[in-house]
């Protein structure tokens, strides 16, 4: 860099008037087949990046991000599950030596020691040797750490009831019952139905949401006449025609089977 007397500046600024040529360094004297990052290597890197991005987008389109139903803090039966990369910590807290009165061991002490050691690796392994096989203690401990993370994650995935988990978070469709339908009127006249399934047909003290299961008309009639598990038989009071209308209404998810879709 030019310094001292004879320097010219742009106006009254401190930017030197003399321009530095914008040419890349010559790497031909560097060892091996060294090449310039810009633009040679970056171009190729971009091509790899593009392929990576395409794969990533395919994943995104093939597997939409999951969304469960809106948070309900009062649902105490929900089995919580963190994202997969925290599963190993979550699993650790299930073991006796790291749970209950020893929670501090599993929640703070063990991860603290592991991550603290990771942070201080350059001072714990301060020898000059870089090859992993020439520093067996460091490599061994790292392998142990990786293996235990994989093991704990595996155990956690294995123990988790994925079907129950998918079910407990499902978005429940709001059923809009057509209250002008004939079937609805018939339902409202049946004390015994309302007693268990509620006035809105969406379930009550003793019975489930009527529209929860997909039955066709005949199956619904069969259940009303003969009962089902926990549901008593022969509770319907009315004519066979009314029964048929009600069953049709229920099988049609609470919409009037004869009405037009509005």
């Amino acid at each position: 860099m030019h310094r001292g007397k004879g320097m010219k500046f742009v106006g009254d600024s401190r930017v030197p008037a003399e321009r530095k040529p914008n040419i890349p360094k010559d790497y031909s004297e560097y060892p091996g087949k060294t090449e310039a990052f810009w633009p040679n290597f970056l171009l190729r890197e971009w091509m790899v990046g593009a392929v990576f991005l395409i794969g990533f987008l395919v994943l995104t389109v093939a597997h939409p991000a999951p969304l469960e139903r809106i948070a309900d803090p009062t649902d105490s039966g929900y089995i919580p599950l963190p994202d997969w990369y925290f599963l190993f910590l979550y699993q650790l807290l299930k073991y006796e030596f790291a749970a209950g009165q020893y929670t501090v061991v599993g929640a703070v002490l063990m991860p603290g020691v592991a991550f603290g050691a990771l942070l201080l690796v350059p001072w714990l392994d301060s020898g000059k040797e870089r090859r992993p096989l020439k520093r067996p203690i460091a490599s061994g401990l790292m392998m142990l750490g990786v293996a235990s993370i994989i093991f704990l994650t595996w155990e956690s995935v294995d123990e988790h009831d994925w079907e129950a988990a998918a079910q407990q978070g499902e978005i429940v469709d709001d059923v809009e019952v057509d209250e002008t339908a004939e079937g609805y009127e018939i339902y409202q006249s049946q004390e015994s139905c309302i007693g268990c399934h509620g006035g809105d047909m969406l379930g009550g003290a003793a019975g489930p949401n009527i529209f929860e299961s997909d039955y066709d008309k005949d199956a619904v009639m069969d259940i009303i006449i003969n009962g089902a598990d926990g549901m008593p038989a022969d509770q319907f009071e009315g004519s066979d025609e009314e029964l048929e209308t009600l069953a049709e209404f229920i099988a049609n998810d609470g919409q009037d089977p004869n009405g037009d879709d509005e």
């Binding site: 530095k20 087949k33 090449e35 990052f37 810009w38």
Partner: peptide
């Protein structure tokens, strides 16, 4: 560049070597 002298800055960012042992090519 005449006003802000950006060439040295740009060379610092763009100009570095990729040694053979890290180049998958």
């Amino acid at each position: 560049d005449e006003r802000l002298d950006i060439t040295p800055l740009w060379r610092d960012i763009a100009d570095h070597e990729v040694p053979e042992h890290v180049n998958p090519a």
